[in-house]
Design a protein around this nucleic acid. Structure first.
Lengths: 136, 136
DNA sequence: TGTTTGTTATATTTATAGTATAACAGATAG
DNA sequence: CTATCTGTTATACTATAAATATAACAAACA
C-alpha cells in the first residue's frame, strides 16, 4: 500500500488515510471496483488501530467513494463517483478562504497562488511516478 | 468589530478569530498600526473567554501580523507584514493538496477550481462591502 | 494612586483521537 | 456443517486539544 502516515502531524491519522485514498482514486492508482485491504489487514500493515482505519473507510463510504460489503470487504466505488455538487463547492470555498486570505495578507500574487494550485491539480491527475500511463 | 463566530462549527473559535483578523488585514479593513480591542474587551464583545482571544492574538503575534505592548495593547503590524516565504508555500501546498485531490476525484475541472480560487482571492483583496475604497 | 494592559498560573469541563478488547452476524471456502 | 474472515457494534481507557473560570502579577499610564 502506498499510504504513508505521519504520526507526529497535527492532522488526524484517519484523515491522512482518507485523504490519501481519495488522492489514490483521483490519480487512478485506485480503480473503480478495486478491492482494498480489510480494516484488520490495513491496520496491521500501518501499525495503527482497527478502528482508526474503519473510521476512514466509513467516511469515504458515507461520501460515496467506497462500497462496503460483508465478507467481500471494501472496494472502490464501481459505479459513478460522487459529483462536485454545490455542497462540495461550498465546503471548498470555506476551506480555501483562510488560505486565500493569508496569501493576500503576505503579499503573494494571485498568479503565483493559482499556478501553485494548478501545479498541484495536475500532479495529482497525472502523477509523476507513472511514466506513460494506461489511459492514452 | 466585524468578527462573526460560529460556535457550532468544527473549526476552533480561536482559529476562526485569527482567520478573520488576517482577512481583515488582507482586505485593508485593518490597517498597519491600527489598535485592536484588548483581550478582555473583545472577549466580552464576542461573549467568549479571555484566553480564547489571547490564543488568537498570540498566534498572530508569533506570525508577525500583530505587535503587542504592555498597556498600549494590541496593534496591527505597523512595519512590514510577514512575507510569503518558502515555509508558507510549503504549508500552502500541504493544505491545498487534499482539496485538489478531492476536486479531481469528483470530476471537477481544473478551470472551475482555479476560477473559484481566483474569485475568492479577489473578493478578499477588494471586498464587495467597500464601494469605492480609499486606495485610488 | 488607581486602573487597564498583557501575562501567567491553576483547575475544570467537554470533545476528539486513538487504542485495546471483546463479541456478533453475515458470507465464504473447505 | 464447520471454520474462518469480513464488517460492525459495544465498551472502556488514555491522551490531547479546546474552552471556560478565577485569580494574581507586573508594567504602563493618567
Amino acid at each position: 500500500m502506498f499510504v504513508e502516515l505521519d504520526l507526529q502531524s497535527d492532522v488526524p491519522i484517519y484523515k491522512q488515510l482518507a485523504d490519501q485514498l481519495i488522492e489514490g482514486i483521483a490519480s487512478g492508482a485506485l480503480t473503480p471496483g478495486q478491492p482494498l485491504p480489510s480494516v484488520r489487514m490495513l491496520a496491521a500493515d500501518l501499525d495503527i488501530n482497527l478502528h482508526t482505519v474503519n473510521k476512514a473507510y466509513q467516511m469515504l463510504k458515507q461520501d460515496g467513494f467506497l462500497e462496503i460489503h460483508r465478507k467481500k470487504g471494501v472496494i472502490v466505488q464501481p459505479g459513478t463517483l460522487p459529483r462536485a455538487d454545490e455542497a462540495f463547492r461550498e465546503r471548498l470555498r470555506r476551506d480555501l478562504r483562510p488560505l486565500a486570505a493569508e496569501t493576500v495578507a503576505r503579499g503573494m500574487g494571485e498568479d503565483e497562488l493559482l499556478e501553485l494550485l494548478r501545479s498541484l491539480y495536475r500532479s495529482i491527475q497525472n502523477p509523476p511516478t507513472d511514466k506513460g500511463g494506461t489511459s492514452p
